[in-house]
Design a protein around this nucleic acid. Structure first.
Length: 292
DNA sequence: ATGGTTGTCATACAA
């Protein structure tokens, strides 16, 4: 495995010298407990071998994060911002990081953001930034006056907007991924009409997310290649008797690109099959392929 | 209209 990673790096270095394309694949996945889902994550890494894997909801303290398993699969650069029982974001990479950073939102210590800067091995001359977000789910009642969790979600989105003005694709190339817990477009949910009053698809959330994305200049990777009215879902509730049959999904997991990366995007794949694996996460991996 | 499931931690709460 180690040899494979080293060979891949050397091929990419050669690619840069010869001025031919360098392929970068990046995956985002809300795993809903990394320890409970360790087998599934390793299976995915062996099958797909993304260069970078961004995880959300690790629900795992720092000292119990399974570093050895990632290393044995070729992911030697790892950052984990963990929290006991809740939240938690991590980035695993075949390429070294040249920097890591994490922001605090809403004056809480919640582990909901982590970022890294990849070096030139990853294909960009000066390296580029990857932001990994876990936006609060927001509870059940879509009213900030009645539901503090929904108020927290709206505050978090407002802070993301302010943060984006300063930090985002202005320092391009950059990628923002994560479980943003909002399905912004009509065809990001199984029924636009029936979900207008359901947290994740209410107008106040979808407008907030679209506004902050557009203001900061991010490209919605999945919709760049697969525009509406194609339905795209990345999450299916555990509560459905048969998730596949009812297919009441939502697109909550996103990959955003700085504008200079839009023309390099070759594919965005939703690994729906993992939802059918034993003991699945309710979210599935979303992978972007870029030819840099 | 209602309840449906999963995970963590300890039997309530977040998603």
């Amino acid at each position: 495995m180690l040899r494979t990673a080293r060979a891949a790096r050397s091929n990419r270095a050669l690619g840069r010298l010869r001025d031919i394309n360098v392929r970068l694949t990046i995956t985002t996945w809300n795993v809903n407990s990394v320890r409970l889902r360790l087998d599934q994550v390793c299976r995915f890494l062996r099958d797909v071998q993304p260069d970078v894997l961004c995880l959300q909801e690790t629900k795992c303290p720092e000292d119990r994060f399974p570093l050895k398993e990632w290393r044995s699969l070729g992911y030697e650069a790892v950052v984990h911002c963990g929290q006991k029982g809740y939240n938690g974001v991590a980035i695993l990479s075949r390429f070294p990081f040249s920097a890591t950073d994490g922001f605090e939102f809403c004056e809480r210590r919640d582990a909901r953001h982590v970022s890294v800067t990849l070096g030139p091995e990853a294909g960009a001359a000066s390296g580029f930034v990857i932001h990994n977000f876990y936006v609060p789910a927001g509870g059940d009642v879509p009213d900030p006056d009645l539901n503090p969790k929904f108020a927290h979600k709206l505050s978090f989105l407002a802070e993301m907007r302010a943060w984006g003005d300063r930090a985002a694709p202005t320092r391009s190339p950059a990628i923002l991924v994560g479980d943003l817990n909002v399905a912004p477009l009509e065809h990001d949910v199984w029924s636009h009409k029936q979900l207008l009053d359901v947290v994740s698809h209410t107008p106040v959330e979808t407008e907030a997310l679209e506004t902050l994305r557009q203001e900061a200049g991010w490209i919605d990777g999945a919709r760049h290649l697969r525009p509406e009215p194609e339905k795209i879902y990345t999450w299916w509730s555990y509560r459905a008797a048969d998730w596949q049959l009812s297919n009441r999904g939502r697109r909550l997991d996103h990959i955003w690109l700085s504008p200079d990366l839009a023309s390099t995007l070759r594919a965005v794949d939703v690994a729906r099959e993992t939802r059918g694996w034993p003991r699945p996460s309710d979210h599935v991996p979303v992978t972007a392929v870029l030819d840099l």
